[in-house]
Design a protein around this nucleic acid. Structure first.
Length: 285
DNA sequence: AATAGAGTCAACCGCTGGCTG
DNA sequence: TCAGCCAGCGGTTGACTCTAT
């Protein structure tokens, strides 16, 4: 069993934040900076748990948070990033200045996944659905399904096929070498972690080294007329995949470079997009 | 105008992984 | 090496608002 909820202490406030609490939290962080969430509430004079304070600050009070509707550009970017990163909302949010992971997660669940479904695309895999989306249900029927969400009705509940994505975070390639806690990766780990040679073989198989220029190590994508180049370093990737621990940020840099290249591409660069995607997947696997 | 279903989103929960002693 | 602590993440919940009947 997990540890007791951090907010279970008697006397701590829960639920919506009051303006007074917001002010206290904001003033404290402005004076002392973020961090030390555990001790922050006491010092700030708040009857909240640290977790709650952190969440409130990160998702609502932070001064750099962008208010207002998500623009079509952001919309498009979220979809593209989701196709690459899956449900790693914090990573996606990191590419959208001023947007929070919670906001993007909510937006995805309430808008984008439905939109993709209606366009005949599986929001989980981003593949075209073989069958067109079912016609809109009668509202009365919908209501019954919605009600089935209620805990009391879990017996009758029709659980939609929603495969869970348990990919390791892109910067944590150590999953190849060190067994992850996540059970869903047991298979992958046992197949590639038995020796570093095997890992190396695996890397050589998934990364198209022939596309890297000798020395200059420029990974070229596209058809020449509309290609995007981004620099990469075979040895750095190998090092990170094999050794794993200290230099994770190098891979992060590589990944960052990849994303920059991705963001530069336009919708006309379909070939380019496909190659970028496959490269990203190879880094993520 | 009343009611109930549907949609939205802030907040909570439980888990993971990094860090430290 | 291990256990405990902590921050951060993604999934889920539920209160509130909107909309259709």
């Amino acid at each position: 069993m997990g540890r007791a909820p951090c907010c279970s202490k008697v006397g701590l406030h829960r639920g919506p934040w009051t303006p007074r609490e917001d002010t206290l939290l904001t003033k404290y962080i402005e004076a002392h900076g973020e961090g030390h969430w555990r001790s922050l509430p006491k010092k700030a004079g708040l009857l909240r748990c640290g977790k709650s304070c952190r969440l409130r600050w990160m998702n609502y009070l932070r001064p750099d948070i962008k208010r207002g509707n998500i623009t079509p550009d952001e919309d498009d970017l979220i979809i593209r990033l989701h196709s690459l990163l899956g449900n790693r909302w914090s990573l996606i949010a990191g590419r959208l200045p001023g947007r929070t992971d919670n906001e993007i997660k909510n937006y995805w669940n309430t808008h984008l996944s439905k939109r993709l479904m209606s366009e005949g695309t599986d929001p989980n895999t981003h593949q075209k659905l073989s069958q067109p989306p079912a016609p809109k249900e009668n509202k009365r029927k919908k209501k019954q399904n919605h009600k089935a969400k209620n805990k009391n009705n879990t017996e009758d509940r029709i659980v939609p096929e929603k495969p869970k994505v348990h990919l390791p975070k892109p910067t944590r390639v150590t999953s190849f070498v060190n067994l992850p806690r996540n059970d869903s990766f047991t298979t992958a780990s046992t197949t590639v972690s038995s020796s570093q040679d095997q890992v190396l073989d695996h890397v050589n198989n998934i990364i198209p080294w022939s596309d890297f220029k000798e020395g200059g190590v420029v990974f070229s994508v596209g058809d020449g007329s509309s290609s995007s180049d981004f620099e990469c370093d075979q040895s750095r990737i190998i090092l990170n995949v094999v050794a794993g621990d200290d230099d994770d940020h190098n891979l992060e840099n590589i990944y960052e470079e990849y994303l920059q290249a991705l963001l530069k591409t336009t919708d006309q660069d379909q070939n380019c997009q496909v190659e970028l995607d496959s490269f990203a997947e190879s880094l993520l696997i």
